[in-house]
Every structure is written in C-alpha cells, then in structure tokens.
C-alpha cells in the first residue's frame, strides 16, 4: 500500500529527532551532566519509528532500558525527558526514575522496563485490559534478544496467544546482550521461529529499513485489531554504541560494527526518499536543524531546572 508523502517525511523526521537526542545525551553524559546510566538507541531508530507510526495516542507501548527512541516516537516531550536524565525536579518522573524508568500514561507509554524481559507480561496485561474494557487499543511490547531468553517471554507470549490479545511482541534483536552475542545464547538463527511454539506468526524484518518495519508491524496491528491475536516480529538491528554510555564495546568485532554502520537506518531512508524526489536536500537540512534546536531547548530546560528537594525522596511511595 502506498504511503502518503507527509507520513514518509514524518518517519524520517522522527528518526532524525531520535538520533540527535541520543547524540546529545551521549555528550551530556560524557560532560558529567547526567548522573546515572544511559543506554542510547543510536542505530536502532528505524524500529521504534516504523512500528509506532501505526499507533494512536491511546494505544500502548511497553519500552525497555534502551527506551528513549520509543518515547520520542510515541510523542514524548524531549524537555521532560532530558530533565529526567539530568535528575531534575521538572523531569518526567520528578527526578526519581532516570533514563530507565520513564512512563507517560497520557500518551500510552506504560514505562521503560529496567529489568530485561519484565515488560512482556505487563504488555499482555495491557492487551487484556483493552479486551475487558472493550476498546480497540493495541499494545506494542519492545524487548531485546536478551529478553527472549527470559522465562517471562514464554509465559507472557503464551498467555497473550491463548487469549488472542491485541499485542505485538517486537523483538529488537541487536545481536548482543551486553557482551554476550546471540550466536552463543540462542540455538536458532531467528527468534521469530519461536512464534510457532505459541501458534502465532513469527516475522523477521530488516530493522535498518524503516519501511520494512512499518509494513510488518502494520500487518501485525491489523491482525491484532481483528481479534486474531499477537504477532512476534523480530527486527534485526544493531546498537552503534556500547551497551551503556562508557562501555567501549570492545567485545564486538570491528568488521561487524563496520558492516552495520554501513547500513545506517537514517542514511538508508534518506537515500530512498531523495532518490524518489520525496525529500530534497533543503528539507534534509531543515529537518536536521529543527531537531538540533529541539534538543538544544530540551538541554537548556534541563540545565535551568531545579533539582528536587532532598525530602521529596519520601513522596510518591503510595497513591
């Protein structure tokens, strides 16, 4: 199905916004302005962008420890994100959560899961909730190759499948669980093959190609909305930086990194769009400039914001 030009430009813009945000996060971390650990999404932008493009504001996503990209794509506010990373009172979580724990229920972001794999059954629950409340909301659950070896992958997907819940399980297979490669942690090539065990489709998609992700997830969303149940989508992708900022990632072979750098998702999409005259050089520059300005404003907001008062530690334990 042809995709409207404006939608294509939106996809491109979202990918660039994520990239510029993450580059700045990396810089600010190095400068000592972000006190806690951060895991950036550089290299994986096509996955969040292509998948979340199908969702309405009231649809749900369950994110991961590498979650900034998901949140930007779902409509998260960069200034609140950056302020949270800076541990400021004005941040998404009042400075209590940090990079790994941002939620925004107003836009259906159910939270980043700091414990790998923990989001899978929670996403099943969001799907169950939509079913019981009688809405047509869908949930996309992001997780990585590492999470696919956690017991909750099995429990959560099985439960969603037997009840035919409207959940898309989107595995961002970036080939490495911190320093352990999938070649030593999986006995199969494709995690998507595990869909067979739950009686659901398992689809492998090129995670560097935003349109491929868009198409695959589009089919999964349609299936979910028709009441036919979940789909397991595996996007093959790569994180361009270490597991966390400060991790040099020396355990990864140089040739492998270069091979994936040559398939930069933003470059791939820009070439596709410029080749078909959907995007001009001028627009490329404009989109980039706007993204940089948005990120700069977010950093300024974060820097100018106050820290929480020490005694705020005691708030928000109970509702």
């Amino acid at each position: 199905m042809p995709v409207a030009k404006e939608k294509l430009l939106d996809l491109y813009r979202t990918m660039v916004r994520i990239r510029r945000f993450e580059e700045r996060v990396s810089e600010e971390f190095a400068a000592g302005n972000i006190p806690g650990s951060v895991h950036v999404y550089i290299g994986e932008e096509a996955v969040a962008t292509g998948a979340i493009a199908h969702l309405r504001k009231d649809d749900y996503i369950m994110s991961t420890h590498r979650g900034h990209g998901h949140l930007v794509a779902k409509g998260g506010k960069m200034n609140l994100m950056m302020a949270e990373l800076f541990a400021k009172q004005t941040g998404y979580c009042l400075g209590k959560g940090g990079s790994m724990h941002i939620a925004d229920l107003d836009i259906g972001m159910l939270g980043a899961a700091g414990i790998v794999g923990s989001g899978i059954p929670i996403a099943t629950g969001a799907g169950l909730s939509a079913r019981i409340r009688g809405t047509d909301q869908v949930t996309i659950c992001f997780f990585g190759d590492g999470a696919s070896n956690i017991g909750r992958f099995h429990e959560g997907i099985n439960m969603a499948s037997i009840w035919k819940l409207p959940v898309i399980f989107l595995c961002e297979n970036n080939l490495w669980a911190v320093s352990v490669p999938t070649s030593t942690s999986l006995a199969i090539q494709d995690i998507a093959d595990r869909g067979v065990a739950y009686g659901i489709p398992g689809v492998v998609v090129d995670g560097q190609d935003v349109m491929a992700v868009y198409e695959a997830v589009g089919e999964a969303v349609t299936r979910a909305k028709k009441g036919e149940g979940p789909t397991l989508v595996e996007a093959k992708t790569y994180r361009y930086r270490g597991h966390f900022e400060g991790d040099a990632g020396t355990y990864r072979p140089r040739e492998e990194i270069e091979k994936w750098l040559a398939r930069d998702p933003i470059n791939i999409f820009r070439e596709q769009l410029t080749k078909t005259q959907m995007l001009t050089e001028k627009q490329v520059a404009e989109i980039d400039k706007e993204a940089l300005e948005e990120v700069a404003k977010a950093v300024q907001f974060a820097k100018e914001s106050p820290f929480p008062k020490p005694e705020e530690t005691l708030d928000n334990v109970y509702a």
Binding site: P121, I122, A126
Partner: peptide, 25 residues
Amino acid sequence: EKVRDTPLSEAAILGAAIGAAITGL
C-alpha cells in the same frame, strides 16, 4: 472474561495483573 483461569504462569499472572491495573482495571 472476568474470572480468568490461567496457565501455570505465576509471573505472567502478576505481570498481566500489573498491566491491567495501570490501564484502568
């Protein structure tokens, strides 16, 4: 629909309950 027998999946029972609780149930 509302009295849900589950598989033997304690983590998914509680995980799904959490997901439902944070989305209005």
